[in-house]
Simulated scan of single mutants.
Amino acid sequence: MNTEAVAKRLVELCRKGEHEQAQRELYAQDAVSIEMPGAPAGALGDAQGLEAIYEKGRQFSAMVEAVHASSVSEPVMAGNWFSVSMTMDVTFRGRGRVQMAEICVYQVRDGEVVREQFFYDIG
């Protein structure tokens, strides 16, 4: 798959809420996932390797009590990179309802996502 095909499939699966399926289909075994520097205590950190990325996703899901709405933009392409904007309206266990917005940047090599990095406001 080329970068555009990977991007379109990732968007398709994420719009359905099938994030782990996207990782299973599209990510390299040695992929890395990078959060914002300075994320608050208790936030999920970086993950190295596909198993660690699955676990990071499971931990995030366990923190969510309810998803009220979510959206994923069309991808913006740049060579072997693409980005999407994601928004979520979620209720976290013990924290209440939160509106989240982030830019997600992905690097593709040999038809697989090898890096994802997230940018969002902290606070």
Rank of each mutant, 00 (worst) to 15 (best):
G42W: 11
V90M: 11
L44G: 07
A41W: 08
Q59P: 06
H68D: 06
A31M: 10
S71R: 10
S61R: 13
Q59D: 14
A78Y: 09
T87E: 02
N80K: 10
A78E: 15
P40A: 05
V84Q: 01
P75Q: 03
G79V: 02
A66V: 00
D89N: 13
A43R: 05
W81Q: 13
V76N: 12
M36Q: 10
E35N: 07
D89Y: 08
G57T: 03
S83H: 08
V84P: 01
D89A: 02
V90G: 02
R58L: 12
L44E: 13
S61H: 11
A39W: 09
I53Y: 04
A52H: 07
M77Q: 11
N80V: 01
M36W: 06
E35R: 05
L50K: 15
V72I: 11
G42L: 14
D89M: 01
S85E: 12
F82D: 14
A43G: 10
N80F: 08
M63C: 06
E74V: 00
S85I: 03
H68Y: 05
P37I: 04
A43S: 15
Q29F: 11
Q59E: 12
S71T: 00
I34G: 07
M63V: 04
D30W: 01
A31S: 13
M77C: 01
Y54I: 03
L50D: 11
E51M: 12
Q29V: 05
Q29N: 13
S73V: 00
F60D: 06
I34C: 08
P75L: 04
G42E: 14
A43D: 12
H68M: 04
T91L: 09
I34F: 04
I53N: 08
V32K: 13
T87S: 02
F82K: 04
R58D: 08
V32Y: 11
S70I: 01
G49W: 09
G45A: 14
K56V: 03
L50R: 11
S85R: 06
R58C: 09
A41K: 13
S61G: 13
F60I: 05
S33D: 15
S61E: 15
G57I: 03
V90P: 00
V72H: 00
T91R: 14
V64P: 06
M63W: 01
F60K: 01
D46H: 14
Q59W: 03
P75Y: 01
Y54C: 04
A47H: 10
A62Y: 12
M63S: 09
A47T: 03
V64N: 05
S85M: 09
A78G: 07
S83W: 08
V67A: 10
A31W: 06
M86F: 00
T91A: 11
A62E: 15
S73W: 03
Q29Y: 12
Q48E: 14
E35S: 10
T91W: 01
V84D: 03
K56L: 15
M86Q: 04
